[in-house]
């Protein structure tokens, strides 16, 4: 049962870069706890800036952005790492550490938040790897894995600290259709377990078939927001 609480709320948010480029204009949007949302739009429409603003990688220049009732643009520099621990993030290019095996890549997220006990890290990491279907691959290095498997490791790393939000920026962009579907099913499973999922994608087929909420961005503005929508860029 999805609780009707705003987890992410944007009130007339704007982002203007120092170059003068206005990437987001007057964006207002609410995402409730437990929702699964697709963010679609053509290249340069402002989707990535939206993700960056949520991660506080860029600062909004107007309006208000709330995540878990925290005013994101007001966060102090030292507060940002603790804020980001509540958000898991997955990228198109996986961004795994090539010199560390699967276990170490996922365990890094646990070490970063200060979990000290080896046994606890091992238990959490193995549990998460099992959940993403990579049990037994702990000692493999990223280059020994397929693209789909690498993205699963990235999802395991994003989810091992049990964040309330999972942001996925083009998670299937480098994958074949079969692996893309497997990754989407995995994200759906994470959502079913209670995580709010926001997926930025260009994949028409996936958006059309999954029948989730679809927010369309064009030239920095939200042009449509449909429950059980389709890809209409």
């Amino acid at each position: 049962m999805v609780e009707q609480v705003d987890l992410i709320r944007l009130n007339q948010v704007g982002v203007r870069y120092q170059t003068g480029n206005e990437a987001l204009k007057d964006v207002s949007l609410s995402i409730k706890k437990g929702e699964f949302v697709f963010l679609v739009g053509s290249s340069g429409s402002g989707k990535s800036t939206f993700i960056k603003a949520l991660l506080r990688e860029v600062r909004t220049t107007s309006g208000e952005l709330f995540v878990e009732n925290k005013r994101v643009e007001k966060l102090k520099r030292r507060e940002i790492p603790f804020y980001r621990r509540r958000i898991g993030v997955v990228f198109q290019e996986f961004r795994l550490l090539g010199d560390r095996n699967v276990f170490e890549n996922v365990a890094l997220a646990q070490r970063v938040i200060g979990i000290a006990r080896k046994e606890k890290i091992k238990k959490n990491v193995c549990e998460m790897l099992k959940m993403v279907g990579l049990a037994g691959k702990e000692k493999a290095y990223p280059k020994e894995l397929s693209g789909g498997e690498q993205q699963r490791v990235a999802i395991a790393r994003a989810m091992v600290n049990r964040p309330s939000i999972l942001l996925a920026d083009e998670p299937t962009g480098n994958l074949d259709p079969e692996n893309s579907w497997e990754i989407m099913r995995l994200l759906e499973e994470m959502n079913r377990l209670g995580t709010t999922v926001v997926v930025v994608t260009h994949n028409h087929e996936i958006v059309d078939q999954m029948k989730k909420r679809v927010v369309t961005v064009q030239k920095g503005r939200i042009v449509s927001d449909m429950m059980q929508g389709g890809y209409e860029v």
Binding site: P81, R95, L97
Partner: peptide, 16 residues
């Protein structure tokens, strides 16, 4: 730098 940026994304403090 890519390693550092990954660490920052997953919530590493500057001290870490």
């Amino acid at each position: 730098r890519s390693e550092i940026s990954i660490m920052k994304y997953i919530g590493a403090t500057d001290a870490f």
